Every structure is written in C-alpha cells, then in structure tokens.
Amino acid sequence: MENPLYRQVLWNSFSTALLVTLFALAIGYPLAFFLAFVARRHRQMLYFLVVIPLLTSFLLRAYTWKIILGRSGLVNSTLTSLGLTDGPVDLFLYNQFSVVLTLVYIFVPFMTLPIYASLEKLSRDQIEASLDLGARPFTTFRRVILPLSLPGVVAGCTFTFALSFGDFVAPSLLGGPNQIMIANVIISQFGTAFDWPFGSALAMVVVVIVLAIVGIGARLEKR
C-alpha cells in the first residue's frame, strides 16, 4: 500500500462511500418519516414502491443510469431541447458524480427501511406527551423522535457505507479511469494480473475497513 496509486484508490472508495451515505441519509430519513407519520391510507403502496427496486437486477439499474446520463441520454437530450447547451456534454458521466448518483439511487432502500423500522416502533404516547407539554413540532422531532430513531440511522448508514465501499459495478460502468475503486483493483488482480496474493491482501484491507465500520456502528447503536 506504499504506492500512491493504491492510496488514491482507497481514498476514492472512502469518499464515494461517504458521499453516498450522506445523500442517501438526506433522502432516506424524510422518506421514512413520511411513511411512518404522514402516509396512512397509501402507506403500503409507498412501502412497496420503496422495496420494489430491490427486485430488479443491480446491473440493470446501474446500466440504466449510464443510458440516462450518456451523450444521447435523457439529461443531455433535455438540455439540448431547452437550448441550455449547444450539444451533448460529458459532465454527467465517467466521474464521481455519476457513481455517487447511481449508488444513492440503488442504496436508498437500505437506508430507508431501517429508519422506517425505528420510527414505526416509536411510542406515540411519547410524541403526544411532548406536544401536550407545549413543545412545538420541530422541538418534538429534535428532542424525542430523532434521538429514538438513531439506531435505525446508524444501521442504515452502516449498510449503505459498507455496500458502497465494496461496490465494483457502478465504478466499472460509470466511473471512468479516474474513479476506480478498491473492488475494481481486487478484481483486476485476480482476473487480469493473476497476482492472487496481492489481490487477497487488498481484499483483507477491505474486510478490515468494513468490519471496523460495522463495529463502530454497533457500538454507536448500543450507546
């Protein structure tokens, strides 16, 4: 790992996984909150819409975003038809933006479902007591709902970060040469370079990092 190239690959993996986790949390928590407290009659249907992407192939979902963000895809076609660009642009593909966007779309359910499970288990008596004692809705959310839902937040962040850190499909399809992640290097060591000892060493590095993240998440959840 003394080679700066591998340090850069590890940094790409860590920063991408961190961005995916943050954006997935920004989307998943409001969605879980809406399912738990706002959606009533249509809760089952919305829950099904959150879960149904998991029934689709991971590769298909990633490749769909490659088509959408491509030069002849929906985004470029829309910008060109609106006159915002003179022609197709390459800003949306083969960079960290496209990888993060794709992984956020894929892993939002893994963030939403644990948070929804925590919110669903909350005692409505505590919320009603907070409101009866004069707390405003935002204060009730900040002092009651958010702290009690943190186990779901920790679990969702752990799932999302670990899965994003070890992903190789999205970087292969949408990342380009500058957004190679550690899983892609491991695959190349086993498949192209035939350097199995080094590939195994890199795999152990990934396992150690993921186990450390899982351990930190478990400790935070207990606290």
Rank of each mutant, 00 (worst) to 15 (best):
I67N: 05
L69A: 08
L69Y: 00
G70Q: 13
S72G: 13
L74G: 00
L74M: 12
L74S: 02
V75T: 04
N76I: 08
S77G: 15
S77F: 08
S77N: 10
T78I: 05
T78S: 09
L79Q: 00
T80Y: 05
T80I: 07
S81K: 13
L82M: 09
L82S: 03
G83A: 08
G83V: 01
L84P: 05
T85G: 03
T85S: 06
D86E: 15
D86H: 06
G87P: 08
G87V: 06
G87M: 12
P88M: 05
P88D: 07
V89A: 13
D90A: 14
L91R: 11
F92W: 14
F92I: 01
F92L: 12
Y94D: 11
Y94C: 14
Y94T: 02
F97P: 06
S98L: 04
S98N: 11
S98Y: 07
V100P: 00
L101R: 07
L103R: 10
L103D: 05
L103Q: 15
V104R: 10
Y105C: 12
I106A: 09
V108D: 09
P109Y: 02
F110A: 03
F110S: 06
M111K: 12
M111L: 10
L113H: 00
P114T: 06
I115F: 01
I115R: 03
Y116K: 07
Y116A: 02
S118M: 14
S118Y: 07
L119D: 04
L119E: 01
L119W: 01
E120Y: 06
E120K: 13
E120A: 14
L122I: 14
L122E: 02
R124W: 07
D125T: 04
D125E: 14
Q126A: 10
I127T: 00
I127A: 11
I127G: 04
E128A: 08
A129G: 03
A129H: 04
D132S: 14
G134I: 00
A135T: 02
A135W: 01
A135M: 07
A135S: 14
R136N: 10
R136D: 05
F138K: 09
F138G: 03
